[in-house]
């Protein structure tokens, strides 16, 4: 199936004007499938970590959002053990005017501002609410262990 112009343009722009701390590289054999890395934002428990994600553009993209998940283990109230991300723009709030770049930026922002009130990983969110400092320390530790650059 021919690749829509939109995906080609987005890919070109991602390559030509990369976002700081984010990279997204399409697979050679499947240009709808991207290897993504996001650097943990400064002053967040994820600082210093490099997180791998996989991103897939479904057939009816951009009518439906990209499918994306963390491959690197991460301790975060809005990301579950399978790496699935709880982010409104990846679900009902998706709009075809959004793009890969904006989604990755949203995910990077989510790392900087975990939201335990809208959790996906319930146990993590629980810990986050009970003892935020301890949770942040765990997140730091996981980052050191699993998200080595």
């Amino acid at each position: 199936m021919a690749l829509p112009k939109r995906i080609i343009k987005e890919t070109e722009r991602l390559m030509a004007e990369p976002v700081k701390g984010i990279s997204a590289v399409p697979h050679e054999d499947n240009l709808r499938y991207f290897d993504v890395t996001i650097e943990g934002p400064e002053q967040s428990p994820y600082e210093g970590g490099v997180f791998k994600l996989e991103l897939f553009l479904p057939d009816d993209y951009p009518m439906t959002p990209p499918k994306i998940r963390f491959l690197t283990k991460i301790y975060h109230p809005n990301i579950d053990r399978l790496g699935r991300i709880c982010l409104d723009v990846l679900k009902g709030n998706w709009s075809p005017a959004l793009q890969i770049r904006t989604i990755l930026l949203s995910i990077q922002a989510l790392l900087g501002a975990p939201n335990p009130d809208d959790p996906l990983a319930n146990d993590v969110a629980q810990k986050w609410k009970e003892d935020q400092n301890a949770a942040i320390e765990t997140a730091r530790q996981w980052t050191r262990e699993h998200a080595k650059p």
Partner: peptide, 9 residues
Amino acid sequence: EMDCMVCYN
């Protein structure tokens, strides 16, 4: 400005 925000064409 003439590009469509959905298809980028």
